[in-house]
């Protein structure tokens, strides 16, 4: 489902702008933004997930979903050395990118969204991991080919591509009563 208009258009635009600025200055990797879309969480499958939750007048999650190849490319560029395997530096790099995206968003949209308190990034990665939400009747750890994030939320996904590789910045947001 393609997103046409939402009450958070400005937030989405700022995430796109911030992500492009961060990739241009801090990594640096040239990226192209695609068209945003909705995705049910049960359908998300990827190799690395970096999550930052936020609270305040609005609450939600900003996340970076990327496969192994783009994660290695980002890490290699950030460190200035070729990284060929997922390890702590890769998680650290992806977490820091997410931190900068969330921080930049917070700085740019605080007038629209009110104060935001950001968590530190949580990065989950590996070739054989699955997260199962606690709403299921049985806690389970299964072993598919990539990380999956199972819950009932629908994400706004903002896709980006670089030299044939793609990654998504995801957003869940709601106004608190």
């Amino acid at each position: 489902m393609t997103i046409t208009t939402t009450m958070y258009d400005n937030v989405i635009k700022e995430i796109v702008d911030s992500t492009q600025e961060i990739f241009a200055t801090m990594i640096p990797v040239e990226i192209t933004a695609g068209e945003s879309f909705y995705q049910k969480e049960e359908n998300i499958t990827t190799d690395l997930i970096s999550l930052i939750s936020f609270t305040g007048e609005h609450s939600g999650i900003i996340a970076l979903f990327c496969n192994k190849n783009i994660a290695l490319k980002i890490t290699s560029n950030m460190l200035g050395i070729e990284v060929t395997e997922l390890h702590q530096d890769t998680k650290d790099a992806i977490g820091e990118v997410t931190n900068m995206i969330a921080g930049s968003l917070k700085n740019k949209v605080c007038e629209d969204l009110g104060s935001m308190h950001l968590s530190i990034p949580v990065v989950i990665g590996g070739a054989s991991l699955t997260i199962s939400s606690t709403c299921k009747t049985h806690a389970e750890i299964s072993l598919p080919s990539a990380v999956t994030c199972n819950s009932r939320s629908t994400w706004v996904m903002l896709p980006f591509s670089s030299e044939g590789e793609t990654f998504n910045v995801g957003l869940i947001i709601k106004k608190n009563d």
Partner: peptide, 12 residues
């Protein structure tokens, strides 16, 4: 900085 990667980026 709690990020070792960020420390390396700043150094570079």
């Amino acid at each position: 900085d709690d990020s070792a990667v960020m420390r390396k980026i700043i150094q570079r």
